[in-house]
Every structure is written in C-alpha cells, then in structure tokens.
C-alpha cells in the first residue's frame, strides 16, 4: 500500500554566517506513515522536528534524502493538494473574518461557489466557531486561532494533516477540543502527522511515535512496542491480599480465591521514555 508520508534519509544543513561548518538540523531521518495513521514526532526544542515537517511541505529543500506525500515528491506543488498544514502559533490575516479566512484558503485550493460555502459552514461547525464566523481574526483568542487554523488545514479535504504544536499556548479546555478534533480526523481516516511537547496528549492520540534528538531519530515504533519494558512482567490481580503479592504465580495457582486477570509487560510512560532517550542519553 502507498504510504501517506515517506521521508527517506533526510538530511538538512543550514549555513550560518561566520561559521565554516554548516549546522546539521536533521541528520539521516527516515519516517514512513501509513494512510489513516496518527503519527507523533516528539523531541526537545531545536531537535529538528519543525525542519523535518517543513521539508515534507517543501518549505525547505533537503540537503540530502527525499520526502514524498502519497507518492508525490514534496518539492512539487502538486503534492500539496493532499496536505493540510497548521503551523506553530499561526496568526493568519487579522483583517479577515473566520468565514473569509476559510473562503480565501478554499479558493486557493480551487474551491468555489456553493460547494465552498457549504464547506466553510461545515468546517466552522466542526471547530465550533459558527458563532464567530463574521468576527475578524484580530479579535480571536489563541484557542480560536488554533481552531480556525485547523479548519483552514482541512478546507480542501486533504488526506494528510500536518500539525506543528497544535496545542501550544492553548488552555486545557482548548487543548482538549483540539485533541477531540484529532480523534475526529482519525475517525474519518485522515492521516495525521503531529509534533507536540504535550507528551500525554501524544500518548493519547498517536498510533506510532518517533523521538528525534539532535537531528537524529533515536526511537520509533508503535506506542505499545515503545512503552513495553522487556525485562519485567506485569501481573494484575483482583482481590489479592498483600501477602499474596510475594508469591505471585504459585500462590495464585494454589490459592483458589484469587484470579489471575492478565500477565504481560508493564508499561512505562511516554514522558519517562522521552526523557530517557533525550536528556539521560549518554551518547549522541
């Protein structure tokens, strides 16, 4: 099956004034995202997340490697027909109202007439901004701007949505609304590629996660695989007394009152894994 996103050995270097050696922002990163998947890219500030996203959108040209969206080269304009993008801290045009903003982006994607108007209405309802459709964006709150940003990203019904820190600076309620919208996109079969600092949220919505640190992909996989601890076993008991915990297996088998519900590998948290792979990492 064709991948929604295919990043192959991406390298991006920036030449800094006064420096002979270029700064390597992204170092041999490869990411494959299947259609309908929600993929989270996490990493500390300056680790190369946004640069990788920009390379995928054709906003920066790779120094080496390739990026493609549904098989189309990211450097080609046509590939962007399939993508909706919400940048970090978007401001948009303050002189436009919510409805005008969506109309503007819709027209850029070739929409017009009644179908565009219908789409504008649907999207405003989806992001819960119908009441603010005729208000200029200059008067929108941060959370409202994020939501109108998400709506503009969806205007041409893209098969892939890229979200760069979608909940940055948004209050918990706004953050929850955006999380629900991501679930909604997932339900519609739309592929989501997001990067966020809110690890709990990433853990909640993503199917797979990649951890990027100093430009390199240090860990990648499904959440279930990543969060499993191989050398430990988790035992969940119901009605177990404290004494019973000392001799788990034999006691459970011997003790007829206790019930062995599940035996498997206990999970760490995404946050713990993130810190272990970044700050506690000994080698680059």
């Amino acid at each position: 099956m064709e991948s929604a996103v295919e990043i192959r050995h991406l390298v991006k270097e920036f030449r800094l004034p006064g420096h002979k050696t270029p700064l390597r922002a992204v170092d041999d990163v490869s990411i494959t995202i299947a259609p309908g998947e929600v993929y989270g890219l996490i990493g500390p500030n300056g680790s190369g997340k946004s640069t990788a996203m920009k390379a995928l959108l054709g906003l920066v040209a790779p120094t080496a490697g390739t990026c493609s969206i549904f098989g189309n080269d990211s450097l080609k304009v046509d590939s962007r027909q399939e993508v909706g993008f919400l940048p970090e801290n978007p401001y948009f045009y303050k002189h436009l109202t919510g409805a005008e903003t969506l109309r503007f982006y819709g027209k850029l994607c070739g929409l017009r007439g009644p179908s565009l108007e219908k789409k504008v209405g649907e999207l405003l309802e989806l992001v819960d901004l119908t009441g603010a459709r005729d208000r200029r964006l200059g008067g929108y709150s941060k959370g409202m701007l994020q939501r109108i940003g998400l709506a503009q990203a969806l205007v041409q019904e893209p098969r892939l949505v890229i979200l760069d820190e979608p909940t940055a600076g948004v209050d918990p309620i706004g953050s929850r609304q955006i999380r629900d919208l991501i679930f909604e996109l997932k339900g519609r079969g739309i592929t989501v590629f997001l990067c966020s600092h809110l690890l709990e949220q990433v853990q909640e919505v993503c199917d797979r996660v990649g951890i990027i640190f100093r430009g390199r992909m240090v860990k990648e996989g499904s959440l279930d695989d990543l969060l499993s601890i191989d050398d430990q076993t988790e035992v969940i008991l119901r009605n177990a007394s404290p004494e019973l915990l000392a001799k788990v297996r034999e006691a459970v088998l011997a003790d007829g009152a206790a019930e062995l519900i599940r035996a498997g590998k206990p999970k760490t948290t995404l946050e713990r894994l993130f810190l272990q792979e970044t700050l506690d990492r000994k080698e680059p």
Binding site: L59, R80, F85, G110
Partner: peptide
C-alpha cells in the same frame, strides 16, 4: 505572521 507557510503549504 507565518501566514506564508499556510499559503505555500497549499497548492500555490
């Protein structure tokens, strides 16, 4: 304002 990102991220 990063509005350029959202425009160039469309097929423009």
């Amino acid at each position: 304002d990063r509005t350029l990102y959202t425009i160039l991220a469309k097929p423009v």
